[in-house]
Amino acid sequence: MIEVVNVWKSYRSGIRWVEALRGINCRIERGRFAFIVGPSGSGKSTLLYLLGALDQPSNGEILVNGQNLVTMSEAMQNLYRREQVGFIFQSFNLISNLSALENVLVPFLPRGITADQRARAGELLKQVGLEDRLDHHPYQLSGGEQQRVAIARALIKQPLLVLADEPTGELDSKTGDEIYKILRSMQHTYQTTLVIVTHDRRFITPDDLVLEIQDGQVALESGAIADGSSWPNGSKAEGSAGSNGEDSPGRGVSLKAGE
């Protein structure tokens, strides 16, 4: 249901152009739990944000559920973001002036919040274990709790797709485990497609789809990799070597020579 066809994205950095994505192709079926992994600077976040119509590719097509994000009007993009995609960020990104409940309701704030939506927000916060923190503001919540609010915010629109950029990047590993437990159970309950950018392969299970990005391209695609410690050699030899983690100076780093 997500189809990425030969997508390029370049940024201007001073007088030079940085090619963050260089002809990405991939497919993510509806209802999958998908991971995007790869070295730092390889273009993972860029791809994720393009899937959320937060920016436009320089070239190529992105189809989500049959809708072409590239040719979509501004108004349709707003609608798409409000109703079909949920975002979860590494740094939680809650609105500090709003309570947990109001943060969950943020997508609906401009049009006025109905009692129905309010009840659903309360229900979601209960599901992520925050039923007694509805009126707390972000500064009164721990990192893990803030991220749970963010998950509820992503889910309140009953989205087709949830996009998460390093959702456990700022959490300790125990809290990270909890977050993944919630994400998996939520995905099970609501049957949404989840795409998660991470460099922590601990959370990948055999049934997940894994897209290994390097150099702005998909180096390896695998639907059945259970063990994050190493990649099986031979299946897709091209991108397999030395690609396990942020710190390895792979081709993703040499790409950044242009910066």
């Binding site: 937060l54 108004a75 707003n78 609608l79 409000r82 975002f87 500090s96 704030l109 401009p110 629109k157």
Partner: peptide, 16 residues
């Protein structure tokens, strides 16, 4: 700026 970015990702339009 980040806050506005977050609002936009949640479907807020430029007009909002």
């Amino acid at each position: 700026f980040v806050e506005f970015g977050v609002l936009r990702t949640n479907g807020w339009s430029e007009a909002n």
